[in-house]
Design a protein around this nucleic acid. Structure first.
Length: 507
RNA sequence: CGCGGGAUAGAGCAAUUGGCAGCUCGCGAGGCCCAUAACCUCGAGGUUACAGGUUCAAGUCCUGUUCCCGCAACCA
């Protein structure tokens, strides 16, 4: 059995509130929810803290608000609400939802950057960049088309402004934070997973990483948290956003996070800058930074211009929370890129929910009602040995998968148990035995029901709604025992009917 | 020669890090009739992108080539 942490603090990134939720956001959040629910089952509900939220400052948001004709705060209120709604619809069990425009956060960020300054890690310097007058902001060289801003068809000017910089390289303080982060990654104290992402981070650390600025001139960025000691500056969104992982749990002992999930686009910030900031202010580092992959859709990059965007809201509306959770989280090994094939949604639904899980549930509950009065029949320990071994082993594999954050492997375990149970029924022709000699078949049905109980417990983190219904029908709870023999003979069983109707594939 | 990942059956993905190329879906044949046209068994389908090399043994290691994809200093 694997070693469980004493407590489990898990975070998703806070999502940038410049638009509606994306399927990638849903993927990260579902993954975090699966782990949260898993740990709640096995180390206790009060030992798990699951944080998500929204990042609500910055130029882009101010601009989008203006385009929508709304005040920035009104705009982000709406966006935050759409995230909240989606998480609710997806059965996400987050303990907190932090917004960077909340007072508790802003207060902490001011404290945090002030501390960086007091500790000697901030210095003032010139930032030089390409500035587009039309956009009223700095523009990256890679975004230029023929040397011009694509939005305004004009060449940007080179502009300098004074910013406060964070001393990563130890030029202004006694510590070289980049070297320290590198050492901590090498020593395994800070784990970057999957391994290939750790390689990438180490690769970045072997190149020159310049210090980054943690503030912006107020004239260029108008929507943010003021720098406490400098009226002309606002705190740059990254310094603002990363700090949420602390501000949300300030005053408690949840920190350090056990797992911080993120998409690979923001790996550098989380695996290098964030640890450096924590070191500078004397905080512990998160245990694991886990970077998951991206989706392509039908083999292509998801993009609005191609028009192949998968909308998580629509998907949830169409398929419900369990199915959406299943389709997204079991699509590919966690940590790799995966392809979403929408034409396969119905096929995958039928294969797993209707044919496999739903059919099995209906199959054995019907038998129990037909021949055993809807009650858990008597058991016979001498007929349980093989099942007990198999189930024990299944749990071992399951816990190991969870420990390694291999979400796609977690669902394989109960799937295989059910498959074995179906084989068992066929091999013994149990429907016949039940008809002819129900007493003889009784212990076998007990085994089948017990297998269902274990499967449902294992499925619960991934498809909480359906798994809860099944466990309820069996008369047990979600924090049930993973030892064999948890069902009590004589326990009344509910009939569930068709839990997941088969869908016809529209041609 | 900026850093890194990838190319395996019609589709989507595995392969305990060198040991008989597997899984799911789809497809074909049979079985069963308790269950949702479900379930069970068997089968077809691969020169593992390409060319060399190391090895008793290579999808896996090495060299080269082609193609795809992230990141590349402020982009959530």
């Amino acid at each position: 059995m694997s070693d469980f942490p004493r407590s489990f603090y898990i975070t998703t990134p806070i999502y940038y509130a410049s638009g509606d939720p994306h399927v990638g956001h849903a993927y990260t959040t579902i993954s975090a929810d699966i782990l949260s629910r898993y740990y709640r089952q096995f180390i206790g509900g009060d030992k798990v803290y699951f944080l998500t939220g929204t990042d609500e400052h910055g130029v882009k948001i101010a601009k989008n608000a203006e385009l929508a004709g709304l005040a920035p705060q009104v705009y982000v209120d709406q966006v935050a609400e759409s995230y909240r709604q989606l998480w609710q619809d997806l059965n996400i069990s987050n303990n907190d939802f932090i917004r960077t425009t909340e007072e508790r956060h802003e207060k902490f960020v001011r404290f945090f950057v002030e501390k960086l300054k007091d500790n000697g890690y901030l210095y003032e310097a010139e930032y030089e960049g390409l500035y587009c007058v039309g956009c009223e902001k700095f523009i990256a060289e890679k975004d230029l088309v023929d040397g011009k801003c694509p939005d305004h068809q004009r060449a940007p000017e080179t502009l300098t402004e004074k910013n406060w910089f964070f001393d990563l390289n130890g030029k202004h303080s006694s510590r070289n934070l980049l070297l320290e982060v590198k050492d901590l990654i090498h020593s395994g104290e800070l784990k970057i997973l999957p391994e290939k992402m750790e390689k990438e981070v180490l690769g970045l650390l072997n190149q020159d990483l310049p210090d980054f600025s943690i503030s912006r001139n107020k004239q260029n960025v108008k929507w943010g948290i003021p720098l406490p000691w400098d009226d002309n500056q606002l705190i740059y969104v990254w310094a603002d956003a990363l700090t949420n992982y602390l501000s949300a749990v300030d005053g408690s002992d949840w920190w350090p996070a056990q797992v911080q999930l993120l998409g690979k686009d923001i790996l550098k910030f989380h695996a290098i800058f964030w640890p450096a900031m924590l070191l500078a202010n004397g905080y512990a580092l998160p245990k694991v930074i886990f970077s998951h992959g991206y989706f392509t859709v039908d083999g292509q990059k998801m993009s609005k211009t191609i028009g192949n965007v998968v909308d998580p809201v629509e998907m949830t509306k169409q398929y419900g929370s369990d199915v959406t959770r299943y389709l997204l989280s079991t699509n590919c090994p966690f940590g790799d890129d995966g392809d979403i094939n929408r034409e396969q949604f119905v096929e995958k639904y039928n294969a797993f929910f209707a044919n496999h899980l739903g059919n099995y549930v209906n199959r054995i509950l019907t038998l129990a009602h037909k021949y055993y009065d809807g009650k858990v029949p008597a058991r016979d320990v001498s007929l349980e040995k093989d099942w007990q071994n198999q189930v024990d082993n299944a749990w071992l594999v399951y816990h190991q998968a969870a420990e390694h954050v291999e979400l796609e492997k977690m669902i394989k375990v109960p799937t295989e148990l059910i498959q074995s149970a179906n084989e068992y029924i066929t091999k013994l022709e149990l429907w016949k035995v039940m008809k002819e000699n129900p007493e003889q078949a009784a212990p076998h049905l007990y085994n089948l029901l017990e297998v269902l109980r274990h499967s449902a417990l294992q499925l619960y983190p991934i498809i909480p709604e359906g798994a809860s219904k099944i466990l309820e029908a069996l008369g047990v709870g979600i924090d049930g025992q993973s030892a064999w023999g948890g069902l009590a003979s004589g326990q009344a069983l509910n009939q569930l009917g068709i839990l997941y109707p088969r869908l016809e594939n529209k041609q």
